[in-house]
Design a protein around this nucleic acid. Structure first.
Lengths: 234, 234
DNA sequence: CGGGCTTTGTGAAAACGTGCACGAGCGCCG
DNA sequence: CGGCGCTCGTGCACGTTTTCACAAAGCCCG
């Protein structure tokens, strides 16, 4: 069975949509829906059907022509492709406001990403318990990572400490990073890195607001074409 | 001077990078740097210089050949283009864990997005004060939005209430949404919408982790090409 | 068991974003 | 004041993503 393991690489844009499909499929499954067409799935995801079909085709040919996709089976395939058949414990670096909120937020463990450790440098934080996890000192990071086999690190430090946190995480053996700090961090080749930045998102919205405001008076209503990006329209 | 207001539309990918440049420029300015080249800026942003120059060229020709860009002037231009010369108050719908964390997080007001209102439906929440703002009932949303001239809404409700929150926000006159709920919401044409979803980000990382794990044994070390997306490499 | 209806899977085209390479313009130095 | 070196601005080629359009394939009904 070592054969069909790693199929062709899936384009990043598609990978980013798979979790969305997965959520929709799970919801539908819970409501007792057994079969779903690319058209319906597209409707729920706010995309067009062709894109959905192409995305799913990267997983294999799991649909039935004339019918659609069997929900339960497709869920299994998507989860498998995303590597969600196992848990991925994460370590959170930074036990401030954000770190605590993240640890307290249930949505982590629920979805297969239990908080396997929390790290801070402040002596006042170390030892306290947040979201059921005891905060440890940065010096213990490597030990935490290795003992729990953690490969995903979450950076929830202030911007100034983010690069240091990233370096420590990589040195400890973590290979994927999710960065919440408002700073660009650089990581060695081969390490995956995603970034979530509130301020950036708001500033992007601001751009379109501002643009809306200035075109409104010169043109008639040249409303921004509702920037695409997981947006749906009614 | 009503002339050069709305230049050509800037590609979304570029718009998304402008806030990053802005942050870097501001940091450099604070450190006393007066002039910066596209090369240096690219280094800080983890991008290549050509992309930086192309992005900046959408704002106009503000560089000096042979020299670079004047930091202070460029900051002004980027802020102007992003509409950051004014404050954009936001209203947060959902005063649960996440909503409270967002309101408490200083980074909002600091950057020109003061929390102008918080909304919830639970009587237990209404009336309480979070991050200096009193929580009001959903029924009062329109009034809050109109009285403070709010055009940006933040959705921090559970997934099940997200669409309802979005509808209420749009009905109240909000034209931009930032959605933290793990649900696809649909909005009328002309409304801007961005989404931040923890679980999705983690699942994307999971995909690359899983892939790394399975290629490791079959190939030598066909490390994932460090998926591009605001990632830098050392 | 065959024809019609439906929906998938996928080539090919179009649109979009990125990176390269180089001409154009500016400052500086001799 | 002319030449040199540096860096911007951008045309062009390339790679990726989206969209279109249609043949292939399954199901159902008569």
């Amino acid at each position: 069975m070592a054969g069909k393991r790693s199929r062709r690489r899936i384009p990043e844009a598609s990978v980013a949509r798979l979790p969305v499909y997965l959520r929709i499929l799970s919801e539908q499954f819970d409501e007792g829906v057994n079969s779903i067409s690319s058209e319906e799935l597209a409707e729920f995801a706010g995309l067009n059907a062709a894109k959905v079909r192409k995305d799913l085709s990267y997983l294999g040919s799991y649909g039935t022509r004339g019918v659609g996709y069997e929900v339960e089976f497709l869920i299994y395939q998507v989860r498998r492709e995303l590597g969600l058949t196992q848990d991925w414990p994460v370590v959170i670096v930074g036990a401030g406001n954000l770190g605590q909120a993240l640890a307290g937020y249930g949505g982590f463990g629920d979805r297969g990403f239990p908080v396997g450790g929390m790290i801070d440098v402040a002596e006042s934080k170390v030892g306290s318990v947040v979201g059921g996890v005891r905060v440890r000192h940065l010096d213990e990071l490597a030990q935490v990572v290795q003992s729990r086999n953690i490969s995903i690190g979450v950076i929830a430090t202030p911007g100034t400490a983010a690069q240091e946190a990233a370096d420590a995480l990589v040195a400890a053996g973590v290979t994927s990073l999710l960065n919440f700090a408002p700073t660009v961090i650089s990581v060695p080749h081969g390490i995956s890195m995603r970034k979530v930045d509130l301020a950036v998102e708001l500033q992007i919205l601001s751009y379109y607001e501002q643009r809306r405001a200035s075109t409104e008076q010169s043109n008639g209503l040249q409303a921004v074409p509702a920037e695409r990006r997981r947006g749906a329209s009614a």
